[in-house]
Design a protein around this nucleic acid. Structure first.
Lengths: 109, 109
DNA sequence: TTTATTTATCGTAATATTGCGATAAATAAA
DNA sequence: TTTATTTATCGCAATATTACGATAAATAAA
């Protein structure tokens, strides 16, 4: 196998996993932090900043784009990447709900 | 390849990615939600609840345990799994910091 | 003691991910 | 037009992940 059995879970569970999975790589964390810190949103600047090849960065950008966390805006020959408000709020809400649903009272061991 | 170049990133970035990656599978989301909802913390009950084999569940539990999100307590022949307070707070803090570091003002496209 | 229950681990197969160089495709500059 | 820049995509190799059955190891029950 190697294939996740996503059919067996709720769409909410699948969505949560999908979003967290997209954050589950140091390069993608670095990309998001770079975009948030507004150093630039130009693809080429990200490539210069990170210690990975252009094609690898492009692939990570695509993964973030596929789940909706960022969006890309073609500006001439360059591409401007940006965090997507709506999906970022979705991620924020999912995280807060999940994190706050646990209370130390309901620990059993 | 297939190997993440974690040497090139900060330890904070690697830790964030590691934690989110652990949450990046629907089965592991389901396991955590099950534990938080306190239906039980017994491994066997998780196996009954989820549509995956015992060995697969055991593997997912190990992954969550390896990053520290849950801990296992052997009680006789059974094992009781539980969210780890300290790591859960770490995850909470990391998430809040990351999510709130983005503001819609600093969007550029 | 013998047998059943419970969970971890091993081995295997299939698929996914990561990373890179090469190349394509498109705009910008000369 | 020709050449340079910029980014996406293809193809490949190496490793990781997911899933399962079989088995081991340990406690519990008979």
């Amino acid at each position: 196998m190697g294939t996740t059995k996503s059919n067996n879970f709720t769409s909410k569970q699948n969505r949560k996993a999908e979003l967290f999975k997209a954050l589950g790589h140091p390069a993608r964390i670095a990309i998001i932090e770079f975009l948030i810190n507004q150093k630039s949103c130009i693809c080429g600047d990200i490539v210069e900043e990170l210690p990975l090849s252009q094609s690898t960065i492009s692939q990570h950008l695509k993964e973030l784009k596929d789940v909706g966390i960022i969006k890309g805006d073609i500006e001439g020959a360059k591409t401007c990447y940006c965090v997507d408000d709506k999906v970022w709020r979705e991620l924020e809400e999912i995280s807060i709900l999940l994190m706050s649903s646990y209370s130390e009272k309901n620990k059993c061991c």
